[in-house]
Each structure stands twice: as C-alpha cells, then as structure tokens.
C-alpha cells in the first residue's frame, strides 16, 4: 500500500499541520511516511501545500507529479492540482470560496463543507481536522488509536487539551462528505 497525497490551501488553514498529524499517525502505525512542504515565499501569506506519502514500503521520491488523493482548500490550489490527480484517484475539496468546481470525470470527487461546519461549532481551528475526517472516511489508512497518538506527538503539550475537540472534528468530518462524481 502506498498513498500519495497533496494537501493544498491558504497559509493559516492548517494544511501543514493536517499533513503532519496524518504523517505522525502513520509513524505510530509503523508505516513509512514522508512530509514535504512547500516553503519559503509561498508560506509567507500565500498558498501552502504539503505532499504526504504513507506507505508499507520504502518511499522513493518525496517530490511527485501525480497524486492518489488531492485535498484542496482554495481556488488557486484547485487550478494547480485538479489535473495532478491520477486517473481513478480521489479529490476532496471544501466548496467554500471555490468558483470553478472540479469537472474531471475520471476521478472520484467529494466535497466537504468543513469551513461552514467549523464555524457552526465555533471552533475554526479544527477546520483541518474535519477535512482530515472526510479523507479518513474514504481512505482509512490509520487506525483511530494511532491518530490519537499522532495528535499527541504533533501538538505541543500546551495544546493537548484540544485533542478531544480534534478527534471529535475528525468524527464529524466523516459524516460530511458529499459525493459529486463516483467511479464504479
């Protein structure tokens, strides 16, 4: 099993930390993982993206041109990464702020209204965990107990009181997916 994922959105949406929690959960499940951020000027206010690879085998390139899954959280990232999903792959996106919706017919497409839900919960910080929940519903790469460990390892101790909120958000996310294009 090898899952190659791009997570892309605005800086501040928790893109990098979502990837880190997924990667650390993978380590806890004894998987090979790679977390490769875009950094530098892109991180300073503009778009942010991270490539996460979770695998049972030694990981070859941390840099990829095609992905099994794209998790897309803004329009610039949609423009850039919709075309990079492998045929038969998966695209999950939050429609909030998206003007040009994905149109490919050869990939699975789901929307998840995570920003909306995080607003309703009054917990804007768990937005990324709602999205992660949606992803894990479709691709259960890591067991819940290892996500718990991944959260413990990824979050600084002063934020450990937020772990239940994060886990709750993951569960909520699992129920929020809307299938838009599903291949047989």
């Amino acid at each position: 099993m090898t899952e190659e994922i791009i997570i892309a959105g605005f800086g501040g949406q928790g893109v990098l930390s979502m990837g880190k929690i997924l990667a650390y959960s993978g380590v806890m499940q004894n998987k090979e993982v790679s977390w490769m951020p875009s950094y530098g000027p892109e991180m300073r206010g503009g778009t942010a993206n991270v490539t996460v690879i979770v695998s049972d085998e030694r990981i070859s390139s941390p840099i990829l041109n095609a992905f099994d899954t794209a998790i897309i959280l803004n329009q610039q990232s949609m423009d850039k990464f919709e075309k990079s999903v492998k045929p038969g792959g998966l695209l999950i996106y939050d429609p909030n702020g998206i003007t040009t919706h994905p149109s490919r017919k050869d990939i699975n497409i789901y929307s998840i209204e995570a920003a909306d839900e995080a607003g309703k919960l009054g917990l804007s910080k768990v937005f990324n965990m709602i999205v992660l929940g949606g992803f894990l519903k479709l691709k259960p790469l890591v067991a819940p107990e290892n996500i718990h460990k991944g959260l413990e390892k990824s979050l600084p101790a002063r934020h450990h009181k937020m772990i239940p909120d994060n886990e709750n958000a993951i569960e909520i996310g699992k129920g929020l997916l809307k299938p838009l294009n599903v291949l047989n």
């Binding site: 993978g26 090979e32 993982v33 977390w35 490769m36 950094y39």
Partner: peptide, 9 residues
C-alpha cells in the same frame, strides 16, 4: 533544502 525541511520517520 528539501532534505533539511521535509519530515520522515
């Protein structure tokens, strides 16, 4: 810079 900045197990 990539090996320095990326995270792996």
């Amino acid at each position: 810079g990539a090996i320095g900045q990326m995270m792996e197990k």
